[in-house]
Design a protein around this nucleic acid. Sequence first.
DNA 1: AATTTATCTAACAATTTTGTTAAGACAAAA
DNA 2: TTTTGTCTTAACAAAATTGTTAGATAAATT
Lengths: 230, 230
Amino acid sequence: MKQIIDTIDDKTEMLHEWQMPDDKQEPTKEQLILEAAEREFLLKGYDGARTMAIAEAAGVTHAMLHYYFRTKERLFNCIVDSKMQTMGKMLLAAFGDERLPLLDRIRNGVERHFDFVVANPDLPRFFINEIYVRPDRLNLVRHNIEKIAAPLFAKLQRQLDESAARGETERIDVRMLVLDLMSVNIFVFIAYPLVESVFGDFAADRARFLALRKAESVEIILRRIKKHTI
Amino acid sequence: MKQIIDTIDDKTEMLHEWQMPDDKQEPTKEQLILEAAEREFLLKGYDGARTMAIAEAAGVTHAMLHYYFRTKERLFNCIVDSKMQTMGKMLLAAFGDERLPLLDRIRNGVERHFDFVVANPDLPRFFINEIYVRPDRLNLVRHNIEKIAAPLFAKLQRQLDESAARGETERIDVRMLVLDLMSVNIFVFIAYPLVESVFGDFAADRARFLALRKAESVEIILRRIKKHTI
DNA sequence: AATTTATCTAACAATTTTGTTAAGACAAAA
DNA sequence: TTTTGTCTTAACAAAATTGTTAGATAAATT
């Protein structure tokens, strides 16, 4: 504490604002760097991100960034790990509820997945792109993905097969369906600046447009598996 | 001295007399640089691309690259312009045939668009990403897009409305439908390394997998607009 | 009080990447 | 053959970016 140091003059004047003890827990510099790095990496990608820009956004000198994380690559990996966990949890939360009837489960999954992407609009593009540019990064995520996707796919496929056997839905490979689902849910965010430009007034009100898109996703996926009763 | 690309209107003007495209003449250095630059930029993006890597791939020193194109940015813009034209032509070719009945026109459009993406698998990701990272680049392409998209959309919307009025298809906004179409056609390529990893044996035979995906795209889009029940 | 620890700063070093220049090689024209 | 302009190379320069180090400071620990 500072009351110990009352030697000659009041040294509290030498303390900087940010060093003052505060009731509220202020984020540590390390956290600030992580948050700034997340924004920078998600927006610009590894190659486009600049460590100095991250440091500046975090309000520290770039030496601090290297002090805490040593290299740009290590800082990047911290972000990747953190985001991987976020995505894994989301997938389970969106599609993991096995008690629901098939169509409800899928509708629910589409909607929750869509909501997740709304809340994390840069995340899919970030992963997809970093892996495209440097495919060796797949190893950072492959195990994580397979551990979650494989059992989820197996259970969903069984439910799909049962439903198809009863003649309630079309027979379809769960991987095709999930790929369809992710395509319609994610693409609009990946291409958002382009979509906004082409759509004009249609996409001007973002909230309204996204609500329409969400409904469209549900519609197109359910239509894909519902029986055509001609 | 160097008559560089300040006027890019007609590409042949960039070639010198003795360089004129002869039937069986080896490509000029300039051509080689452009081809190498296209590969590098499409794969790695502007930030990840290295002018020296481009020069090396083209078999020239990097000084040559600057001699012909002065800056990385100018070389990049050459590639963007060239690819924009390619995409514009494709869109018209895929959806421009107005004599076909609606469903045939759409099926045809989906298939031709899919084929184009198969032939240019990096192109959508390239555009989408460069524009995301630096939205000011929209100005390079906006005019081009609007000139092609606006009339195409208008005509397609009319045909959709007429069909819906006859009760043959569902009523839908053409922009939603095109966005759906692009989503299912493009996303699988943007995410290909991830998809390949998750799908395993399913995607191991690329040609077979892409054939399945093409059929799936047609199926999901046609199901979206066909009347569901009678 | 003395020591240790975590945090921080400023200056500097190293590396990578882009961009420039001067001089020579070469083919075509004169 | 000489001249002319294009093309090429090697070396250099400049800029941007990442990474390092020697300390300073405040707090925690002993």
